[in-house]
Design a protein around this nucleic acid. Structure first.
Lengths: 223, 223
DNA sequence: GTCTATAAGCTGATAGAC
DNA sequence: GTCTATCAGCTTATAGAC
């Protein structure tokens, strides 16, 4: 669609993207929240400026227009999402690996829910800016992890299952707590997420999914 | 927030809401798609009119304004979502009941994904129009189902688990295929959902979740 | 680099002819 | 009931002073 992310090259040097000034990252964060709350079309540049505590024209000084700001936010999020479940090999233990992956994902949902919500908004709305990313980055990523899971199955380390659907299930159950935070909190009647709640959820999700694919959870809990 | 759904009384008579004309439901459907794609703020009355194949003023003839149209769409969706997992009692078999519930939810995701996406948009964006519904309808609904699951646990029909988190897991995994359809289809490389795919997914989700809470799936598949 | 003022275009809503 | 024409207000983006 109108200017997709170009497989998003990682940041030039090691550190964070070295914002030209502190304002750059402030605006990026403000934009992430606004886009997460209202989607691309619903987001307002004025609202982003307000969240950042800056006049609107200042936002336009750092980012050419709404479109490029949105792409910058997406790029920022996707880069921060690498390094999860990445360095996995056939030799690893399925239960330990999946447990670690699930707990990392739950922690991400709790620590940066707006990033997850922004991504969810983009996908729900048909991924107009990310269809290239899904094809070029995410699809191969899934294929590689699915291959590893399949190799575990072939090696008799775990019972037969659909590796791709297993990855979808982990995504769905973990991201749910970021994306549907309003619903979850309304039902469990807690104003905010806290650490014990996160651990309880991580225990439940990991235990249930691992047992669900016939694996023994590495650290048995609550039973 | 600005005019919530008032616990949404069901339609007066038995049948569908008896639209004043065919246009009424046409607009409702068009609005559902537009709101699902862009959220409340991002949706455009002109786009809804275009989708319905009507001039914009005609839309305003049937619905006072954007707000009331959005509420009508939400009301319509929520009413159609009743009667699922509703008539369940302590005497029922957990495996059969959960399996049926999961398969119904998967089918809904495949048959009316825009309804699910619209709801997802609303929740992701903080449930500004549905916070009352979550509190007044959904929270008690979950509490009642959780009680039944807990009674199964107490009766020794299934191992101990967190009933509320189990419901969340079923929601998350089934709705995922509607809400993240763009991502799923991009990764499995199919242009559209079809019946065999739906059955494969329903089998996987049901089998994995049931086994995950220590239940024997009622109709063993693929293993 | 920062910010006020404003241009140019879009959007929700309505008036009023048919 | 239907639809063209149009208004008032909002939204993105920029010009230009500091």
């Amino acid at each position: 669609m109108q200017g997709e992310i170009a497989t998003a090259g990682a940041s030039p040097e090691g550190g964070a993207q070295r914002p030209r000034d502190k304002h750059y990252s402030t605006i990026l964060q403000a934009a992430q929240e606004e886009f997460a709350d209202h989607g691309f079309k619903g987001a307002r540049m004025q609202a982003i400026a307000d969240r950042a505590g800056l006049p609107k024209a200042n936002v336009h000084y750092y980012f050419r227009n709404k479109n490029s700001l949105y792409l910058a936010v997406l790029d920022n999020i996707l880069n921060s999402w690498n390094d999860f479940f990445n360095d996995v090999s056939v030799k690893d233990d399925p239960a330990v690996t999946l447990d670690t992956f699930i707990r990392q994902k739950v922690r991400m949902s709790f620590e940066d829910p707006t990033a997850s919500r922004l991504f969810a908004n983009e996908i729900i709305q048909g991924a107009p800016y990310l269809s290239g990313y899904l094809q070029d980055v995410m699809k191969p990523w899934v294929a590689e992890r699915a291959e590893i899971i399949q190799s575990w199955i072939d090696a008799g380390k775990m019972p037969d299952t659909d590796p791709v659907l297993l990855i979808f299930m982990i995504w769905a159950t973990t991201q749910h707590y970021a994306d549907f935070q309003a619903q979850v909190q309304s039902i469990v009647a807690k104003p905010e997420y806290d650490e014990p709640q996160m651990n309880h959820i991580a225990d439940f999700v990991s235990t249930t999914i691992l047992r669900g694919c016939g694996l023994q959870p590495p650290s048995p809990i609550s039973e």
